[in-house]
C-alpha cells in the first residue's frame, strides 16, 4: 500500500526540447517522510504536480495502492502544498470560505496551526505568506488525504513560522500515518524532518 511513480517522463508540449523528467521512479510508504533534493531546474515541482495529478506524464504511471491515481474520484488522496500560498487562494474569497470549501476543517487543526479566528473573515492580500500557508496546510489535510507533497512550502517564510509549520506537520503525519514527500533546497531542514533522502535522478 503505497504511492508509486513508475518511470515517469514529462515534457512540455510547446518546446520540442529535452524532457523535464525522464524515467523517474519513486515510492512513498505511509508514515514515511522522504526528502527530495536536486539542483534547481531539475523538475522537482513538476514531479510533485505529476504525483498529485495536476499534470499527466508523457510516459509512466502514478499508482496509489496499485491503482492509477486518475481513477480516484472526489477529493484526491494525494495533496500538494504549493510554494507560494498566495497563488492557490482565490483573492476574492474570504479565507474562511477558501479554507472550508471542500468540507469543514477540524477546529483542532486551526488551533494547532495558530490560525486566529479573526483571519477567517480576511482576504488573502491582507495576510502574510506565512499566515496564508497555514490555511493551505489545514485545507490540504481533509479526511481523504493520505499523502502530502510539500514543495518548498517554507522556503519563503521566516524561520519561526518554518519551525512552527514543521513541528505541526510532523506531529500530524505521525498521528494519521501520512506519507510525506518533502522538497527543499535546505539540507539541514531535510536532515531534521525526513526519514530518508532521495536525490532526483533516473535509476538506470
Amino acid at each position: 500500500m503505497s504511492l508509486e511513480a513508475k518511470s515517469l517522463t514529462f515534457r512540455y508540449r510547446r518546446r520540442g526540447q529535452s524532457p523535464v523528467l525522464e524515467g523517474v521512479n519513486l515510492t512513498l510508504e505511509p508514515g514515511e517522510r522522504v526528502g527530495l533534493s536536486a539542483p534547481s531546474g531539475r523538475g522537482k515541482t513538476t514531479l510533485c504536480k505529476l504525483l498529485a495529478g495536476y499534470e499527466r506524464p508523457v510516459q509512466g504511471t502514478v499508482l496509489l495502492d496499485g491503482r492509477p491515481l486518475e481513477q480516484y474520484k472526489g477529493a484526491c488522496p494525494v495533496q500538494m502544498i504549493w510554494q507560494h500560498p498566495e497563488t492557490v487562494l482565490d483573492p476574492l474569497l474570504p479565507l474562511g470560505v477558501s479554507l472550508n470549501e471542500a468540507g469543514a476543517v477540524e477546529e483542532r487543526l486551526l488551533e494547532e496551526l495558530h490560525i486566529q479566528p479573526g483571519w477567517l473573515t480576511r482576504y488573502p492580500q491582507e495576510l502574510s505568506g506565512g499566515e496564508l500557508q497555514r490555511f493551505c496546510i489545514a485545507r490540504a489535510l481533509g479526511p481523504a488525504t493520505r499523502y502530502l507533497l510539500c514543495d518548498e512550502i517554507t522556503a519563503m517564510l521566516d524561520l519561526i513560522t518554518q519551525t512552527q509549520i514543521w513541528d505541526f506537520l510532523l506531529r500530524e503525519a505521525q498521528r494519521r500515518n501520512l506519507g510525506l514527500l518533502i522538497v527543499s533546497h535546505s539540507a539541514p531542514l531535510l536532515e531534521r524532518v525526513c526519514t530518508r533522502i532521495q536525490s532526483l535522478s533516473p535509476i538506470p
Binding site: 498529485a52 495529478g53 495536476y54 472526489g74 477529493a75 484526491c76 495533496q79 500538494m80 504549493w82 497563488t87 492557490v88 487562494l89 482565490d90 477558501s98 470549501e101 471542500a102 485545507r139 490540504a140 481533509g142 481523504a144
Partner: peptide
C-alpha cells in the same frame, strides 16, 4: 489555469 482553481478541483469541490 489559476492555481487556486486547479487546487480546488483536486480537493474535490
Amino acid at each position: 489555469q489559476a492555481p487556486y482553481l486547479r487546487l480546488a478541483r483536486k480537493l474535490g469541490v
